[in-house]
């Protein structure tokens, strides 16, 4: 089996890379794929927290790379999914502890046993980003519909193209449809207009994401959440399925509601 290495990146911090990584990992696992997620943000780990696996950590990425632990014993199995594993970042070291070549070696080994290796890239364009980019077969770029996040996404898209990993696909996270309608937030079309990247997912703003992250149960496991559904759709598109984009409009006008009613929805 030759698995696919997918790197989740953004340039700017705080746009939702780790949330996206955790949710994609779980969505892919729930589709029956064998998945390992790697936290490449050495020194500032938090993928384990969002996945609710913090208290199970014994070894981390740096231990594996430096040969202190075996790959198999360092991977943490998810509580709910048999085929979902986490390789956590080290807390006490920095990004220089791992080199891009180390990451390639590690992911080549993981490719043998897994369908998807998902790497959570740190913010920035330095070593940590290079570590996450080097082994990637595909890069998903997370951005928010705001000018500064789009600018950074553009910057790293340039770097991704220069490293021959391009062009990458885009996840637009935390979109607020009502603000877009009022013209106060960039729409997905505006973002596409600047970046020219294929969009693989549009995730609406959803308070459930925050509570889910805090409780360590990613939002995809919550069927009531629009964001959760949107992440599920991203995972399905990643596997090659053709999934239509969902309607994010929360408060349809009377006419639209009538149409939907007549449509039997």
């Amino acid at each position: 089996m030759a698995g696919k290495v997918v790197t989740i990146s953004s340039g700017k911090g705080g746009v939702g890379k780790t949330t996206a990584t955790a949710n994609l990992g779980i969505s892919l696992a729930s589709l029956g794929k064998k998945v390992v997620v790697i936290d490449a943000d050495i020194g500032l780990r938090n993928l384990d927290v969002i996945m609710g696996l913090e208290n199970r950590i014994v070894y981390d990425l740096v231990d594996i790379v430096e040969g202190r632990s075996k790959l198999r014993q360092s991977m943490i199995k998810h509580k709910k999914f048999e085929d979902l594993f986490l390789i956590p970042a080290a807390q006490t070291r920095d990004k220089m502890a791992v080199s891009p070549e180390d990451m390639v070696k590690l992911t080549d080994e993981l490719r043998e046993d897994f369908d998807y290796v998902i790497i959570d890239s740190p913010a920035g364009i330095e070593r940590g980003f290079r570590n996450a980019l080097e082994p990637a077969d595909e890069v998903l770029i997370v951005t928010n519909p705001e000018v500064s996040a789009v600018r950074d996404a553009d910057r790293i898209t340039g770097l991704i193209e220069a490293a021959d990993k391009g062009p990458g696909r885009l996840i637009i996270n935390r979109l607020k449809p009502d603000l877009v309608k009022k013209g106060e937030m960039l729409s997905s079309d505006d973002v596409y207009d600047i970046l020219g990247l294929k969009i693989i997912g549009i995730i609406p703003e959803d308070e459930l994401v925050l509570s889910a992250s805090n409780s360590g149960i990613p939002v995809t496991l919550n069927m009531d959440s629009k964001a959760g559904m949107a992440f599920n759709n991203v995972a399905r598109r990643l596997t090659g399925e053709d999934v239509p984009f969902m309607n994010l409009d929360d408060n349809p006008g009377l006419f639209q509601r009538l149409v939907r009613f007549l449509d039997g929805r």
Partner: peptide
């Protein structure tokens, strides 16, 4: 894309966009 700079002491033609 953002962050890229082109210098030329002649003319420059870009078939593509010049992003912010």
């Amino acid at each position: 894309r953002s962050g890229r700079t082109i210098h030329s002491d002649g003319h420059v033609v870009i078939y593509g966009d010049v992003n912010p």
